[in-house]
Design a protein around this nucleic acid. Structure first.
Lengths: 209, 209
DNA sequence: AAGGCTTTGTAACAATTGTTACATTAAATT
DNA sequence: AATTTAATGTAACAATTGTTACAAAGCCTT
């Protein structure tokens, strides 16, 4: 585990911090689709991403969900960070988008890390800021752009995250993420296909570059 | 100034911190409409709000703007916080919504406060989190709600911030904030008037409670 | 191969939001 | 008071997005 830690966080954390994280953290591996953080549960710890990609959704009591951001190698989830320090139930849900590795740092140790290591503080601050920038970006998309452009960006992002031009997903799933109906997505996808930007098959969307 | 500090921040900051802020900070007063932070400038410091309300907008190079959140008594602007530590030019604009007082803490002192005072760190963390929650809230509104509901909420928020049921603003200004056209806002306002929720006059919207 | 389930395609129509154009009214200026 | 300017009202129409309903196609199970 310490080698993974060094590889991903060696440039930002001093070696004493790396060693401490190695002691108190536990490496976890999840496969695509698995839930790291569930809605309504108390959060066990803060995840440090080693590899892969995890999507973070805001969840509302009525079951509604809203995509906030992805966390990838070197990131942490600043929303869960706060839940920890406040001992609150999770208002988010985190799902592995692809097979992923991360190190879980238990809640109980968070406070002392903040006190001891300035590089850890820096990391938490910049993590907060980066997540904020991404949520603002999401807001910007919804506020400024039409659905067809948002769909294109959505597909590009998926492709980047899954590292594939062949997206295995249904129109229904896309519709839920973009908060519209399946029919609307099918319609727009067909339009993009006619423009030669992609090819549609059952359960897959082949992006043409 | 120290009395204002004690009144607003006495419950979260230890007295040594209050005294230090009293030394290094400068009290500033702005009247409604004044700009506290301008787009593209280097940020001079982090504002601690004593009274009033300041709106924070994201600004894009093309001049487009997007409302992010208000900061009020006891708040700070977490976006400017990061600009400071990174020595970057401001990507936001802050405008006093009503007459306001705040204490400006110079960039140069920020780092040492973080190292010295855990209550300051707590404050910055929770400030980041609160702003995040507000931006997520804004995203939620745009993603889930129709324009007429968003307009009603917008008017309620304005009323709360300005502490008045008589809003001095034009339809054009509302349209810019909600990213739509003046005609659409006039139409919806007229509908709300017919529903008895408000009364329209030139330059003012009178909310009926 | 047949039947059932899921996914996708498509038409027709409704609702919402955006746009253009111009009239009307209120305030400000001369 | 007359003129100019800014703000609002309204109609007519366009574009986008949402909804319903059903057909067609692909996949899975037996």
């Amino acid at each position: 585990m310490i080698n993974l830690l060094r590889k991903t966080f060696g440039f930002i954390f001093e070696s004493t911090l790396i060693e401490e994280i190695n002691k108190i953290g536990t490496l976890r591996e999840v496969s695509a689709g698995e839930e790291l953080i569930r809605f309504g549960e108390f959060i066990q710890g803060v995840p440090l991403m080693i590899s892969g990609a995890v999507r973070v959704n805001r969840v509302y009591p009525d079951g509604n969900e809203l995509f906030l951001y992805y966390i990838e190698e070197g990131d942490t989830c600043s929303m869960s960070f706060n839940c920890c320090t406040q001992q609150k139930k999770s208002e988010i849900r985190a799902i592995a988008e692809i097979d992923s590795q991360f190190i879980m740092i238990p809640v109980s140790k968070i406070e002392s890390l903040i006190g001891k290591y300035s590089s850890w503080r820096q990391f938490v601050f910049s993590s907060y800021h980066n997540r904020m920038v991404e949520v603002v970006y999401a807001l910007e998309k919804v506020a400024f752009e039409k659905l067809d452009d948002r769909l294109e960006e959505y597909l590009d992002q998926k492709s980047r995250i899954t590292q594939s031009d062949s997206l295995q997903m249904t129109h229904q799933e896309i519709a839920e993420d973009l908060r519209t109906s399946r029919v609307v997505i099918s319609r727009l996808l067909k339009k993009l296909e006619q423009m030669g930007k992609l090819k549609l098959q059952r359960n897959t969307i082949e992006l043409i570059r």
